[in-house]
Amino acid sequence: MDNILNLTGRVLIALLFLGGAVQKLADPGPVQGMIASLGLPTVLVWPVGLFDGIAAVLLVTGPRVRQVALVMAAYCLLTSWFHWQLRADPWQVTIFVKNWAIAGGLLVLAASGPGRFAR
């Protein structure tokens, strides 16, 4: 049962990143606006979208799950900074906290490993 739960958790986390990749690559405008508001080059949307997609695949298929989970946890903590907008949009604070929660789940995954269902 542990291995099935591990795989299910990996798939659910991966779906979040896959959705983010599709959103960034299909309609980059909103993310480019957020990136530009921080003074960063909007072209970053493309490598970030690809990074999200590749990470999603790696979380599900299993190669180096521990390392991918650690990198993705750091990514979630780093990108949460984009959502710390208390006065501009309070809903973004919820996304900030969600990113930290996902990072926590990824750290647990990094500690436990991919289970039996991984390459």
Rank of each mutant, 00 (worst) to 15 (best):
S80M: 14
L58D: 00
V43A: 14
P63V: 06
L59V: 09
L109V: 03
A26M: 14
W100Y: 08
S112W: 09
L78N: 02
L107Q: 03
G39P: 04
V57N: 03
A103C: 04
L7H: 06
A111M: 05
Q85F: 07
G29A: 15
K98V: 06
L78E: 00
D2M: 13
M1L: 10
L106P: 02
G29V: 15
S80H: 07
I95H: 09
G49A: 13
D27R: 15
W91D: 11
I102H: 00
L106T: 04
Q23W: 13
V57I: 15
D27S: 11
R66G: 07
V45N: 07
N99K: 03
S80V: 02
F51Y: 15
I102S: 05
A56M: 09
T61P: 00
W46V: 14
W81Q: 11
G62M: 10
G113Y: 07
V60N: 00
I4C: 04
W100V: 12
L38F: 15
T94D: 10
A103F: 01
A56D: 05
A69I: 01
I35N: 04
N6S: 14
L7P: 01
G105M: 11
T79D: 06
R116A: 14
L50C: 10
P90C: 05
A55G: 13
T61Y: 08
F51R: 06
N6E: 11
I4L: 15
N6K: 10
T42G: 15
N6C: 15
R116K: 15
G19S: 12
